Structures are given as structure tokens and as C-alpha cells.
Amino acid sequence: MLKTVEFHWRNTGKTHLTLHVYLIPNDNTLEKAVNKKEGTNMLIDKPRPVHPLPVNTWFTLTPPKKSEIHYQIKPESLKLDYTKNFFEVFVESPKKDFSLQLKPKEKDEEVVWDVSIRKGDYKQIASTVDGHTSARLTGTESVSDILLECLEELESKEWDKFKWNLTKDSFQGKDKIPRSKLEDKEIWDIVTCMIEHYQVDGAVKVTLMVLKMMKQNHLAEQLQEKYRQFKQAAFMVNT
């Protein structure tokens, strides 16, 4: 049975919000492991589903059908089991309250959990680094935010050139990323793809190499400095 649904959020002062939504069975050890994994990411406490949910069942997490807010939710479905997997919910410009609904994958019309996320639920806990507000976070997802912020600075034509270079050459001793994986993808999708393909440190190095190939040296220097600060902060938190 499902014990709890946990939200962990992060915000880097940009206009987007990212939530990690965990489905956790009745296992205190697993719940503690999730909290440790999320580190300083803020926990949003919400009511559990009214009725128990069976383990090894697949679920989807979606916004209401008439929602006006732009969402990206991955993966499309998640199995309630004893792994520490989660739904990642990317909300662009969360200027108002919004809702999420959990449904069994095989029964798409059956809502087993309906929750509202209010602006007061995700007040930012932040530190100031180099004049910019950023959440103090550790782990893979924080690197995603650093890369996302960097690549958002590219203009449309430069962004197309970045994607072209990313598929044109192989980096870090790995095969090229297939062009089909990047076609019609948003920036955050490509950041996720780079991290999955090259791992965390490799994704940063590849981004730096491509930016320098494009003569985007100033942007590369900014990324390098932010990543250095991130690793230093992560070391301080972990020690």
C-alpha cells in the first residue's frame, strides 16, 4: 500500500519551478532514503490519498484537463514500488496555484489523488551567489538547473547551432547523440538527454566544449564558474 506522496521542490530564482513527486510504499527506511537523497530540497507536505493504493501498480500524474499552466511531467507513468524513482514536474511561470491528479495507468478516468499546490507551499529557501539568487542544492538535478540557465541565454539561431554541434561530433569517448533524440525538443529535454548520455560532469564538459566551438566564450566562462561554485557548495554541505 502507498504510505505517502512526497513533494520536493527546487527553485533557482528563474521563472520555472521543478517538483519531484515520489510514490512511497509503507516503508520507513525508504522514506528516510528519499529524504536523504533530496538533501536540502524543500519538502511540501500534502494529504495522502484517501484509499490505499496497491504496490506494483502503474500510475500517471497529470494536470486537470482544463489547466491553463504549462507543464512538463516525466516519466509518463511510474510504478509504485520500492525504488526511489519519482515524477519530475516542470512548471513554467507558476504565477498562480495549480493542481495535479494521480490516476491508475489502466483507468485513466479514475482520479485516486487530487492535490493543489499553492504559491505559499514553495517559498524559496535560498542563498545569494555572485549577485544572483539560487537555491542551495546538491545532486544531479541542480546541475540540470545550472545547464538550463546557461543555455537559456542562447538566441534561437545559436540554440539551433548548439544542437547541431551536439549531434555532429562525439564527445567524452561516447557515441554521438542521435539527431532524432533532439528534434523538436525543448531546452530542458536536451539537458536531461545530455546528462543521461554523458553523466553529470560529462554533460557540463560537453556543454563547455560546444560553447567554445561556437565562440560563446563568455557564456562558457559563466557556466564554468557557476559549476565550480556548485561543486564547492556541494562539498561543504556533504562535509
Rank of each mutant, 00 (worst) to 15 (best):
R48T: 07
L2E: 08
K181E: 03
I24P: 00
H218E: 13
Y22R: 03
V143M: 03
D114Y: 04
M213N: 14
D130N: 08
I24D: 01
I69M: 15
T207N: 11
T83Y: 09
G39L: 04
T57R: 01
D97N: 14
V91H: 02
W188K: 10
Q101K: 05
T29C: 00
K107R: 11
F7D: 13
D169W: 04
L154F: 11
I190S: 10
D97C: 06
L223V: 14
Q232W: 04
Q72G: 08
T4L: 12
S142G: 08
S134F: 12
P104V: 01
D175L: 03
H197R: 06
S116F: 05
N41P: 02
V206D: 03
T239P: 10
R228W: 13
T40E: 06
I69R: 07
P104C: 01
F90H: 12
R10H: 10
V89A: 10
H8T: 02
K46Q: 13
N28Q: 06
K174Y: 06
N56P: 11
D121H: 02
Q216W: 12
S67T: 13
H51L: 14
K36F: 01
H51R: 08
W9F: 02
A233E: 05
D81I: 00
D175Y: 01
K66M: 13
E153M: 09
L80K: 00
M209G: 05
I177N: 10
K212A: 08
K176N: 09
L166W: 04
K119Y: 01
N217C: 11
T57L: 03
T29S: 01
C193W: 09
E158A: 11
Y198G: 09
E141A: 06
K215I: 07
V200M: 12
T29N: 00
Q199E: 09
L30W: 00
L80I: 04
K119S: 06
S180H: 09
E153T: 12
V237W: 01
E68S: 14
V5K: 00
I190A: 05
I73E: 04
K95P: 05
K119I: 06
H51S: 11
